[in-house]
C-alpha cells in the first residue's frame, strides 16, 4: 500500500470533518420532531442501549435531543458565520479602497464593536431582537465580523501598493472594478479560512447565550439549553445529562477548527505538503 502524502492526509482530514458535520446537521434535522417528545414513563434513565445518552426528567431522549441541538447550533453557526464573513469582506474591502473618510468610519465601528465584550453585546442584540432563533442569529452575526474585517482591510491595504493593482489604476480601470477583478480573487483563500474558523466561535457563543437564557426557549433542543438544564441535576448524580452533550459540543467545535486549518494548508502552497 502506498503511503499517503501530507497533502492527501490534509484532504482526508478536511473531507472527514466536513462529512461528520454534515451528518450531524442532516441527522439532527430529521430527528427534530422526536427531540420534542416527552414521555414520563421513561424519565431519568441512565445511558443504556435504547437511549445512548440517557433521558432527562421529562423522559426526553438525550441522544436525539443532543443531535438536534447540535444540528441547530451548526445551522445557526452557518447562517451567522456566513453573514458575518460577508459583512467583513464588504466592510473590510470598502474600508481599504474607498478613501480615508470611509476608512476611518469603518475602523471606528470595528473598534467600537471590539471594545464591548462579545457576550454582552450578543445578549443585548439578541434580547432587542426578541430572542429566539432570529435574535441569536442576528446577535452572533453582528458581533463576529470585526476581526476578519480588520484582517481583510490590512490585506487590501497591502494589495493596493502592489504593482499590478497600480498598473490597473493607471490603465484607467475604476476602483470598484479593480477591487472586484484583482483583489477579491486574491482575498478569497483568506476569506474562506476566516469563514470556517468563525464557525466554532459562532457555535460556542450560541451555546453560551442559550445557556444563559437569552436565546431559545427551554423546550427547544439547543445545546446551551441542554447544558444549563443539566446543571441542576448534576448534584443529584445525573451526570449523563451534561457529559455527552458537552463532549459532543466540544468535539464539533474542534472539528470545525480541523476543517479550517486543513483548508488553510491546502490553499497555502507553502504548507500544503509539509
Amino acid at each position: 500500500m502506498r503511503r499517503i502524502n501530507g497533502r492527501e492526509r490534509t484532504v482526508l482530514w478536511f473531507g472527514g470533518a466536513l462529512l461528520f458535520l454534515a451528518l450531524i446537521t442532516i441527522g439532527g434535522r430529521f430527528l427534530a420532531e422526536k427531540a420534542m417528545v416527552t414521555d414520563f414513563s421513561r424519565k431519568n434513565l441512565a445511558p443504556c442501549p435504547a437511549y445512548l445518552f440517557g433521558t432527562d426528567w421529562m423522559g426526553r431522549d438525550m441522544f436525539v435531543r443532543t443531535l438536534t441541538g447540535l444540528s441547530m447550533s451548526i445551522r445557526i453557526g452557518f447562517l451567522a458565520a456566513g453573514v458575518s464573513a460577508l459583512l467583513a469582506l464588504i466592510l473590510g474591502t470598502a474600508s481599504a479602497v474607498m478613501g480615508r473618510a470611509v476608512d476611518s468610519v469603518i475602523t471606528w465601528i470595528i473598534d467600537l464593536v471590539m471594545g464591548i465584550p462579545h457576550i454582552l453585546l450578543l445578549i443585548l442584540i439578541s434580547y432587542a431582537c426578541g430572542k429566539g432563533f432570529k435574535g441569536v442569529v442576528i446577535g452572533v452575526s453582528l458581533t463576529h465580523w470585526t476581526s476578519l474585517a480588520r484582517l481583510i482591510r490590512g490585506e487590501v491595504l497591502q494589495l493596493k501598493e502592489a504593482a499590478y493593482i497600480k498598473a490597473a489604476g493607471k490603465l484607467g480601470m475604476s476602483r470598484f472594478k479593480t477591487a472586484w477583478k484583482h483583489m477579491v480573487p486574491h482575498l478569497l483563500p483568506q476569506f474562506l479560512v476566516g469563514l470556517i474558523l468563525l464557525f466554532p466561535h459562532a457555535i460556542l457563543h450560541e451555546a453560551s447565550i442559550t445557556f444563559l437564557g437569552f436565546g431559545l426557549s427551554p423546550e427547544q433542543p439547543a445545546i446551551g439549553v441542554i447544558l444549563s438544564e443539566s446543571m441542576q441535576y448534576l448534584a443529584m448524580g445525573k451526570w449523563w445529562l451534561a457529559l455527552f452533550p458537552g463532549l459532543l459540543l466540544a468535539g464539533t467545535a474542534a472539528l470545525f477548527d480541523v476543517a479550517g486549518e486543513s483548508l488553510r494548508k491546502l490553499l497555502d502552497p507553502g504548507s500544503a505538503h509539509r
Binding site: T38, F40, W57, M58, G213, S217, P218, E219, E229, Q232
Partner: peptide, 8 residues
C-alpha cells in the same frame, strides 16, 4: 421559561 416544574 425559568420554571422546570411548570414546563413538565
Amino acid at each position: 421559561a425559568s420554571d422546570s416544574l411548570r414546563q413538565a
